[in-house]
Computed example of a mutant assay.
Amino acid sequence: MKKIGLVGGISWVSTMDYYKFINEGINLKLGGLNFAECIIYSLNFEDIQVKSWENCFELLLNACGKLKSSNVDAIALCANTAHLFADKLQEEIKLPIIHISTETAKAVKKQGLKKVGLLGTKFTMEMEFYRKKLEENGLEVLIPEKQETRDYIQYTVKEELGRGIANSNTKENYIRIVNELVDSGAEGIILGCSEIPLLINQKDFITPIFDTTKIHSEAIVEFILS
């Protein structure tokens, strides 16, 4: 097996999911008492918030450097928004970074879909770094049209889901937001924030839902066993 380095703590809630899904995936493939050999560098999420994501390259680079010094074979950033710097980090550390939006695009294309709705942090929805990877794979990407809706998602991801709080009112609002994207033509919905699956999942919708945490974790398992 290959050794994987995980940059976590962004947030700790979804990092637990990554650890669970990866180890379950390895055991499903190999059986017995086989689990992943991995090292987690868990960042302090408050440091990210103080600096803001746009200014966090050095924090992420330091984490990746520590993992590289532990002789990992590849790195996974356990947050969609952290992929703002994925290409630059890979270039700096000279190790593969398993890219979440590339793997998500593969999963969407397997279902033959062309147009998807994207929910995530404001950075993930509004900046090019995430949507560009999807578009390079032939996908049309829709995000919530209203600024106030995107601001609401940002607030609830940061102040509720990032703390492990799943509010029933918030869930109703997210379901409404998803349905608005579907009404606008989205054939599937990407949950492009690793905390959003704490609130909504495929059981809440007929439309295909793409849980990026699970998709990313499956890709990490494939790498470990490759």
Rank of each mutant, 00 (worst) to 15 (best):
K68N: 08
N34E: 09
S184E: 14
L191M: 11
S11H: 08
P208D: 06
K158D: 05
G5N: 11
A105Q: 05
Y130W: 12
P208Y: 01
I175S: 05
L198Y: 03
G185M: 07
K94T: 04
I75A: 03
C64T: 00
F129S: 13
D87L: 12
I143D: 08
L6H: 04
K20L: 12
L225M: 00
K133D: 11
A36N: 03
E195A: 00
C56G: 12
E195M: 00
E54T: 02
P144S: 04
L84A: 04
I26M: 05
Y18A: 12
R176L: 09
E46W: 08
I165L: 13
T102A: 13
K109M: 06
I48G: 03
L30Y: 02
I220H: 03
S42I: 07
V141G: 08
N80C: 07
L113W: 03
H83M: 04
Q154R: 14
I177W: 05
R163M: 15
F85Q: 01
Y155T: 14
T212E: 07
I97L: 15
E54P: 07
T121Q: 09
E140M: 13
I40W: 00
N44Y: 04
N201S: 15
F205A: 03
I206R: 12
N167G: 08
V116A: 06
I224G: 03
L139I: 11
F35R: 15
Q111I: 06
I215N: 13
A186Q: 07
G138I: 09
N169I: 03
C38Q: 15
E160D: 14
G120N: 14
I189R: 10
M127C: 06
E136P: 04
E103P: 00
L33Q: 14
K122D: 01
K115N: 08
F35L: 14
Y41N: 12
C56W: 00
L118G: 08
I48E: 07
I165Q: 05
E159D: 09
I189S: 10
K203P: 14
E136A: 02
I209N: 07
C56I: 00
L43V: 12
K68M: 06
V13Y: 04
L77C: 00
A36T: 03
K132A: 12
K114P: 11
W53N: 14
T124D: 08
K2P: 14
N167T: 11
I40L: 11
P144H: 02
Q154I: 05
G117L: 03
G5F: 07
P144M: 04
L95K: 04
K158L: 15
L67W: 02
K68I: 01
R163E: 07
I93W: 06
T124H: 02
S217Q: 05
T149D: 11
I224F: 02
K51H: 08
I4N: 01
G5S: 10
T213H: 11
E126S: 11
Q202L: 06
T156F: 08
F210I: 08
Y174G: 10
I26Q: 01
I177L: 09
A186L: 05
L134A: 06
N23L: 00
